[in-house]
Design a protein around this nucleic acid. Structure first.
Lengths: 197, 197
DNA sequence: TACTATCCGGAACATCGTTCCGCTTTGTCA
DNA sequence: TGACAAAGCGGAACGATGTTCCGGATAGTA
């Protein structure tokens, strides 16, 4: 991601003050607009809300994914860090996996269209998919492995598929007739099912 | 849908010959383009392939969903009719449900982006979602009810949620790392799980 | 053959993502 | 402090796409 130190914190070095201001304004504006109109809101709308031109937004965040990840970086990080903590806090790795997936689902469904965007293969969103995967896939894999090792679930599930499937199930979570969590429960129950046919 | 009799067959009555020709040409062109470029191919591309103007396509198929459902009507119909047949051909309703879902999944994943389009809430696609639901939801409900009645699965699953979830899981089926069928198996195994926590 | 209802084609408009470049601002150095 | 160059900014401009609209062509009929 642009303008970022290895620690993950936004760096102020070698940047002009106005550029910094604009970057912050854009993050704030994007957060507001995402809540109001979803993560696929028009670029112009975000730029207008921040009081900058469209060119400026592209300078700071070359792709929409960059902007989205910057806005939600903290929450993604929290989710990633929660994995090992949950695992350490219980003697049932599978219970930890369930709780972690709950956190992940909460994150996805509370952002309008985030799940949609994450699975979309259109140009600007591909990187978003990648970022989520880079950060969260290892966590999921760890929880999954631990659950298998504890003999709580079957062993033939690939972390990538599980994460992707959960992301997919979260699409359209706004529909009152459709609660992704119920199906995800079903999926997890399936993991406990003795063996594949 | 425009220009359609109660039997579901395309009606030739009270239509000019050139209009009929164009409608057929559009259906054929759309089918080809859908295979080549997915169901969200540009309207202009379909119109060009059919050798007509863009206005013509909107006259015959006011929304993209109308065009998609017209192109795939036969296959949707076949899928809907297969439900009761499968149910009649076995003494395990749940086995019939599995087979039927297999058919449904086959249908979704062999059409580029059909699953994506079906779940999208953008204007043109909303009707597509509706059409699928109208036709297939009762079939799914019947299979589900029969399975519950036979004591093969738990009773707390809503047909709409199941269909929608399966549709969601089929999104992005082109990825070689992601096989929706494995997760759908998991989901179905979950249905067999004794009782919800 | 003449006439009209129907239909057609594609220009035109709106929206959106993205690029580009002349102008402005900032930080620095003498 | 007062240039000056580098960095950054704004928004016009371009291309793609969906959608509407209407003058002109055409099929069916009298």
């Amino acid at each position: 991601m642009s303008s970022e130190s290895p620690t993950g914190k936004v760096s102020a070095r070698s940047k002009r003050a106005d550029a910094l201001r604009n970057q912050q304004a854009l993050l704030a504006a994007a957060a507001e607009v995402f809540v109001a109109s979803g993560v696929d809101a028009p670029i112009r709308q975000i730029a207008a809300r921040a009081g900058v031109g469209t060119g400026t937004i592209y300078r700071h965040f070359p792709t929409r994914a960059d902007l989205i990840t910057a806005v939600y970086r903290h929450q993604i990080e929290e989710c990633a860090e929660a994995g090992p903590e949950l695992l350490a806090g219980t003697d049932s790795p599978f219970a930890a996996l369930r709780q972690w997936i709950d956190l992940f689902v909460d994150f996805l469904v509370t952002k309008h269209g985030l799940a949609d965007a994450m699975q979309s293969d259109s140009s600007g969103f591909a990187a978003l998919h990648g970022y989520f995967l880079d950060r969260l896939l290892p966590v999921c894999a760890q929880l999954l492995d631990a659950s298998v090792a504890a003999g709580e679930i079957r062993a033939d599930t690939r972390p990538y598929e599980l994460m992707r499937g959960i992301g997919n199930l979260c699409i359209g979570g706004g529909d009152p007739q459709y609660d992704p969590r119920r199906l995800i429960e079903l999926l997890l129950d399936g993991l406990q099912h003795p063996r594949p046919a």
